[in-house]
């Protein structure tokens, strides 16, 4: 009897460790790499209210949401050179130096899908999936981190019930957009019909 109980407990324990410990919520979410220059999304996208696409301009036309060329930084930072934050080392100076030397800044990719998964940004943002749905409240992140699992099961959640996440096209880059679950379902169903959204769940949709 005690053996059976012990065995049952051990099995439950092992299952719990695997369920909680092997989940992407433990292994992937919260990945917050140190960037070569500590760019602050909370300042630019939050306080200054820059639209996501000001920098990530290709997101609605291309599979890849491009990291902006250094020149985009210089659009403003030719004129603005003062640091607002405390660190002594000048972040803007580093940008200017890289621009002057025509060197690529090696930004670290935060949201990195495996190379065997094909994801198309334009297909999603043009059909009502907001930036914040996958990337979280970037406008509140001093340093960007991975907020969602980005696992296959997580992708399927939306591919199976897109109405839980769809939003109007003019709210795609709206970080603060949020409805109550009931309201979201109502709006989501309408939008699903309007945009004719029938996400595929076949293997070859993402693995080609």
């Amino acid at each position: 009897m005690s053996l059976a109980l012990g065995g049952g407990f051990a099995a439950l324990y092992a299952a719990g460790i695997v369920y909680f410990g092997f989940s992407p919520l433990a292994t992937d979410v919260g990945y917050m790499p140190t960037q070569p220059i500590p760019y602050n999304h909370a300042l630019h996208a939050g306080i200054l209210g820059l639209d996501c696409t000001y920098c990530h301009a290709t997101v609605d036309e291309s599979p890849h949401a491009a990291v902006p060329p250094t020149q985009v930084c210089m659009n403003c930072h030719t004129g603005i050179k003062r640091e607002s934050a405390e660190p002594a080392k000048s972040r803007i100076a580093a940008i200017s130096a890289a621009y002057a030397a025509s060197e690529a800044i090696k930004w670290v990719k935060v949201h990195d899908l495996p190379d065997y998964a094909y994801f198309n940004h334009s297909a999603h943002v043009r059909r009502g999936i907001g930036c914040a749905s996958c990337h979280g409240r970037v406008d509140q992140m001093d340093v960007v981190y991975q907020a969602q699992p980005l696992s296959m099961g997580w992708c399927l959640e939306c591919h199976r019930e897109p109405e839980r996440f769809l939003r109007p096209l003019d709210k795609i880059t709206d970080m603060a957009y949020a409805l109550t679950p009931e309201e979201q379902l109502r709006v989501g169903r309408e939008l699903r019909q309007k945009y004719n959204i029938n996400p595929s769940q076949d293997c070859s949709t993402c693995h080609r």
Partner: peptide, 14 residues
């Protein structure tokens, strides 16, 4: 596991 699930880290994804 609890720590991994609540904290953020710049160590690579596992």
């Amino acid at each position: 596991i609890a720590k991994a699930r609540v904290s953020r880290s710049d160590s690579p994804r596992i």
